[in-house]
Design a binder for these strands. Structure first.
Lengths: 335, 335
DNA sequence: TTGTAGGCGTTATCAT
DNA sequence: ATGATAACGCCTACAA
């Protein structure tokens, strides 16, 4: 049977009000009374009903993350982000609510349900789209949220990595290693970060005086499989690229698989590089050259920005831009 | 401003009750009335307050996992389990609440808070201890929960891997490769699975006629660092083991590092094997021989068992035992 | 077909 | 120092 304030009130003979205040530590309660009440509460193992408390206080001490169905639950990017967010949230005494769309649900509806339903106090958003309807929605609702990425229109707290600079570094590295035919497996232009990374590609090619070849540019959907398929198309070209740059690590790992499937050696025959530095990147065979974004730390940073915002504290920095770091590993070295 | 049933009631001129029933699809509402109400609800973007609904219905459509502080949030074991649990939960339309202890909190208190506070409808438990106080607590509360692992006393739904058989296979594999001096980095005997895996070790050594040497047996705490330290102690012995078996992959990876730090070659000079097959295992250099437990799938299985239990459906199997599989990779092959 | 009333468990306000 | 009352937003007997 559930122990509520009422149980303790009846057991002790005091009113629910007094019990509530005694347990909350208010000082307008007789010391003996409090003692007595606390004793009973302990004996009965009272735990306040959090749902009721949340309803009453209109806050949940919980922040939320919604995992898109496309990313599945095992996308390492989300998992690392998650671990950073969760870690920091727990420092603040917040719980983390994870929600995935139910089978038939539209993604935006998940947000409506969770946000409109006051299920959490704030939301962490990742993989921002160009003209992201989720952001429109959250802004209109004036709901606390933070973004992994960047939002041009309007201000919302965000942390992003300079994808343009990151990709420029990769291309420069390729070229320094003698590559001139560079293939790109980019992500959809619907994604915000694609534009930034693509700009890095364009800038680098121009400043290095290399022509951009249409056929060297293919699109993947961020999964490993899509990277493998995309790389296969590149390698099937009459004059295939000698270096392949994928816009995330998962696709880069797929590209390595495609290269190896053709009996070619990654690094020696075809250089491959990615973006993210998920933990599988360092462990791959050969280890993957990539642009490191400290996903875990960014997650922590986002969580603390979000919680500060929820608690009405001022943010020291509103839009954080992290410098990415090029991690050169064997996948882009001529053996 | 928040849109509630009341808002719609006022806007439409009907009572809150009628609005509630119209939106819930009850058929004792005039078709026109319903139409009208739905229209207003849509226009205002009404979303039911989930906290209120949960309080009223006494259930949250949420299952919980509590991450122990010792494991941190980035322990790959928990992350993989999490992804399995989350995936399946979303199939059932359940959300997943993650909670870590707050700084000073005892682990059991996290359970008291979440469970006693009716924050979730059920709990997934991992890393069971011998005489686990959490299980005592949950059983006394008659709270729905499932366990990754095994519980001897009493019945609770669980999924476990046959650790004894798994470890026996590893030892047999070592011996078949000519190893006779076998070091073991085991986990604490406070953990339930340690006993099972240790039994596998003892059985294998006896049946193969090898003596167990006290000095070849060291303890780690499941982290990579502890594995590295433990392996260092083994390698410092006058007659160090030629094969090292760690009770989880993270410690095995640490052991590989220790071996390599001494300028020895993993596989050729010292064989190393682990347990779990976390994704980093296949990616390690060299790839790690390990006993595979399908953590992700087990997580899914657990979630579905838990939710069925919550919904009062009968379970087809109560205590599931999964056969583990020995995955032989380069870390245990003589080059 | 619609509305009134009560309660889920908590906390805040206002009397006493 | 203590208690009665109301409210958070929802749902559901029961009454009309």
């Amino acid at each position: 049977m559930k122990i509520t304030l009422r149980t303790i009130a009846e057991e002790s003979g005091f009113s629910i009000t007094t019990v509530s205040r005694a347990l909350a530590g208010y000082d307008d309660v007789n010391a003996e009374t409090r003692q007595h009440i606390i004793e009973i509460a302990d004996r009965l193992g009272y735990q306040p009903n959090l749902t009721a408390r949340h309803l009453r206080s209109q806050q949940t001490n919980t922040i939320g993350m919604i995992i898109p169905r496309t990313a599945h639950f095992s996308d390492p990017f989300y998992m690392e982000l998650l671990s950073g967010v969760g870690r920091e949230a727990s420092e603040y005494g917040y719980d983390l609510l994870l929600s995935a769309q139910t089978r038939s649900e539209e993604e935006l509806n998940s947000y409506r349900r969770i946000v409109g339903g006051s299920r959490v106090d704030g939301i962490v958003l990742a993989r921002v789209l160009v003209n992201d309807p989720r952001i429109d929605y959250l802004q209109r609702q004036r709901y606390p949220f933070v973004v992994f990425g960047r939002v041009e229109s309007g201000e919302c707290p965000s942390v992003d990595v300079d994808g343009t600079a990151g990709i420029r570094q990769v291309i420069a590295h390729f070229v320094a290693n003698g590559h001139r035919r560079i293939g790109v497996i980019r992500s959809s232009h619907a994604l915000m970060f694609t534009g930034q990374r693509y700009a890095g590609y364009v800038q680098a090619m121009e400043s290095l005086g290399l022509p951009r070849v249409d056929a060297y540019e293919v699109e993947g959907n961020l999964t490993q499989q899509s990277g493998q398929d995309a790389a296969a198309r590149l390698l099937d070209l009459p004059e295939p690229p000698t270096a392949i740059l994928a816009f995330n690590d998962l696709m880069a790992l797929g590209a390595m698989a495609a290269v190896q499937q053709r009996g070619l050696t990654v690094g020696a025959d075809v250089a491959v590089a990615g973006f993210d530095d998920i933990s599988a990147a360092a462990g791959a065979t050969p280890p993957l050259t990539t642009v490191r974004q400290p996903i875990h730390d960014i997650g922590s940073r986002l969580a603390s920005m979000l919680i500060r915002q929820i608690q009405g504290q001022p943010l020291d920095e509103f839009q954080v831009l992290v410098k990415p770091e090029l991690i050169i590993r064997a996948s882009s070295r001529r053996r």
